[in-house]
Amino acid sequence: MKKWIWIGVVAVVAIFFYVTYNGFVNKEEGVNAAWSNVETQYQRRSDLIPNLVNTVKGYAAHESQTLGEVTEARAKAMSINLSAGELTPERLAQFQQAQADVRSALGRLIAVAESYPDLKANQNFIELQSQLEGTENRIAVARKDFNDAARKYNVAVRRFPSNLVAALFGFDQKPYFEAAEGTETAPQVEF
């Protein structure tokens, strides 16, 4: 009789480990897929930038400093390759800073474009600006989805008794995207 009790206990523990481990794998793959979507949207933005810069270049050739800053920020952001397995708070902060620099440089580029009525009316510029705006929205959605997946994963990693399995098999918490510095204040619009 005692033998069957021990076999039952071992079976329950084995099933617990099996289910918990596979749950972590599923949740981690969810985080990895969400991260891939974030990277895809940032890549889409990076792909649009050269077209936007070239369109502005034709109208505002003397704005070379701003055009150079956009190109430089894009190159810096593209040089940071961060896979889902390398997500640490420090590496994510570095990635976010590079993307914030791109966003800032693009803002300056759009401001320069506002000074050129012919450029503002150019169909290519209007279309690229619209695509860029749509991409920024997609980036926001992808970041939110990533944070949702990371939250579900992190909750599972921290909950007892599954935290014992997580520690045993090396499932660590994932960092979140955070608001970029300076976004807590609304921009001032002046006419």
Rank of each mutant, 00 (worst) to 15 (best):
Lys2Asn: 15
Lys3Pro: 02
Trp4Glu: 11
Trp4Gly: 08
Ile7Val: 14
Val9Tyr: 04
Val10Asn: 04
Val10Tyr: 07
Ile15His: 07
Phe17Asp: 00
Tyr18Lys: 06
Tyr18Met: 11
Val19Ala: 10
Val19Phe: 10
Val25Lys: 01
Asn26Phe: 02
Asn26Val: 07
Lys27Asp: 10
Glu29Ala: 14
Gly30Lys: 00
Asn32Leu: 03
Ala33Glu: 08
Ala33Trp: 01
Glu39Lys: 14
Gln41Ala: 14
Gln43Phe: 11
Gln43Met: 08
Arg44Ser: 01
Arg45Gln: 15
Asp47His: 04
Asp47Phe: 05
Leu48Thr: 03
Val53Tyr: 12
Val53Glu: 09
Thr55Leu: 09
Ala60Tyr: 03
Glu63Arg: 09
Thr66Pro: 08
Leu67Asp: 05
Thr71Ser: 15
Glu72Gly: 11
Ala73Cys: 10
Ala77Thr: 03
Ala77Phe: 01
Met78Leu: 12
Met78Asp: 14
Asn81Pro: 11
Ser83Asp: 08
Ala84Gln: 06
Ala84Glu: 08
Glu86Asn: 13
Glu86Val: 09
Leu87Lys: 10
Leu87Trp: 12
Pro89Val: 05
Pro89Tyr: 05
Leu92Gln: 08
Gln96Ile: 00
Gln97Pro: 00
Ala98Ile: 12
Ala100Asp: 07
Asp101Gln: 14
Leu106Phe: 07
Gly107Arg: 07
Ala111Met: 10
Ala111Trp: 03
Val112Lys: 06
Ala113Cys: 06
Glu114Asn: 12
Ser115Val: 01
Tyr116Pro: 02
Leu119Gly: 05
Ala121Lys: 12
Ala121Val: 09
Asn124Leu: 05
Ile126Pro: 02
Leu128Gly: 05
Gln129Ile: 02
Ser130His: 14
Gln131Tyr: 02
Leu132Asp: 01
Glu136His: 04
Asn137Tyr: 03
Arg138Gly: 15
Ile139His: 00
Ala140Thr: 03
Ala150Cys: 01
Ala150Trp: 04
Tyr153Phe: 14
Asn154Thr: 03
Asn154Pro: 06
Val157Lys: 01
Arg158Gly: 02
Ser162Arg: 00
Ser162Ala: 06
Asn163Tyr: 04
Val165His: 07
Ala166Phe: 12
Phe171His: 06
Ala179Pro: 00
Glu181Cys: 11
Thr183Trp: 09
Thr183Cys: 03
Thr185Trp: 02
Gln188Tyr: 02
Gln188Val: 15
Val189His: 10
Glu190Lys: 15
Phe191Pro: 01
